[in-house]
Simulated scan of single mutants.
Amino acid sequence: MLFYSASCSAGWGYVLGPNSPQWRVHISAYRVDDKAEAPSSFQGDAPPNSWGNALSTRTGCVRAEAWIDSGPHAVTSCWRPDGPVTHPS
């Protein structure tokens, strides 16, 4: 999922699911226009669900990507407060 905060003009990813010492959850906010990235990851015993790092939407749309270790990537649409949603290709 992609979350957005109007008060800080930023978007970040959120993964619903368990955490474990047996795998690493990777979440990256990515700004398409300038290829800026805010990566994060977690591995260990913790309550379920994981938050990623935030990335500003002031200079372009932001999308979230998430994956477990070398598994397939899930990608959200790219969103900015003043423009249309751009779907991943």
Rank of each mutant, 00 (worst) to 15 (best):
K35R: 12
D82S: 15
Y4H: 15
V85A: 07
S20C: 11
S9W: 06
Q43E: 15
K35I: 00
W79P: 00
R63Y: 01
T59E: 11
A66P: 01
A10M: 05
D45T: 14
K35Q: 13
P21H: 09
W51A: 07
T86H: 12
A6Y: 13
S20G: 12
C61P: 08
L16I: 08
S89W: 05
G17S: 10
F42R: 10
R24H: 05
I68R: 15
T76W: 13
P81E: 13
P47Q: 09
V15I: 07
A74P: 00
M1R: 10
A10V: 00
R80C: 05
C61V: 10
L2N: 06
W51H: 11
G60R: 11
K35S: 09
D45S: 15
V85Q: 12
V62H: 02
V32Q: 12
P18T: 09
F3I: 03
P84A: 13
F42Q: 07
L2H: 05
R63V: 00
C8N: 13
E37Q: 12
G60M: 09
S28Y: 01
Q22D: 12
P21K: 10
P21A: 10
A54D: 02
H26A: 03
L2S: 10
S7K: 09
G71A: 06
F3P: 00
T76V: 11
S40I: 01
R80V: 05
P47L: 12
N49Q: 10
R31T: 03
G60W: 06
G60K: 11
S50M: 05
L55S: 04
M1Q: 14
N53V: 01
P18F: 02
F3N: 14
A29G: 02
S28R: 08
D34P: 05
I27F: 04
G17A: 08
A38R: 01
R58L: 12
C61K: 12
Q43I: 09
